[in-house]
Amino acid sequence: MKNAKMHLSTETMNLGFVKKVEALSGSSVRRCFQCGKCSAGCPMRSFMEHPPNRIVRLLQLGQWERVLAGRSIWYCASCETCSTRCPNKVDLAAIMDALRKLSWDAAGPSKESYVQLANRLFMENIRTYGRQYEMRLAAVFNMKSGQFLKDLMLGPKLITKGKLKMFHAKNQNVGEIERIFSRIEEMRKKGEAP
């Protein structure tokens, strides 16, 4: 693919995907003129195989599969530097959210599984308990990712400092939270929400 000759046309551009991203993110993809300012300020650049400006370019050229298959979108820290600095008001941080959602919904062809696992557990915690309990989150994450010894030294330190709660009260709003989740699922089933 790297050396393939590229022909630009509305077909190869795959405008459909671009429009989907634009609708989800509320930001233009097409307005980008590749100045590179986003990537110059991106703190996560060194962890990404495609820097932010190239992600936009790949989208413009219809090569979204390469974007979704990579790990770059999962390594974006949502720091908002790119969106703040873009001279064309391309909201790249929102575009990253949209791309992750599309990848997530498609059960993700992406290589980056740890970030996705952490995200999933975080959301499950909200649905079940209403709030985040860091100790539970870390313990389940380590178990599910098979990294049993990860951050082993942090635990006792945090417990001595009273920073990890062992017990927690149930939030009075868990019922309402569950209804929010299920109403959204319902809306999606009916095609009323993205």
Partner: peptide
């Protein structure tokens, strides 16, 4: 009885 705002993980994959 405030609850979690969803923080980064929620908007990362599900804006709504």
């Amino acid at each position: 009885d405030w609850f979690c705002c969803g923080a980064t993980p929620a908007h990362n994959v599900d804006e709504l």
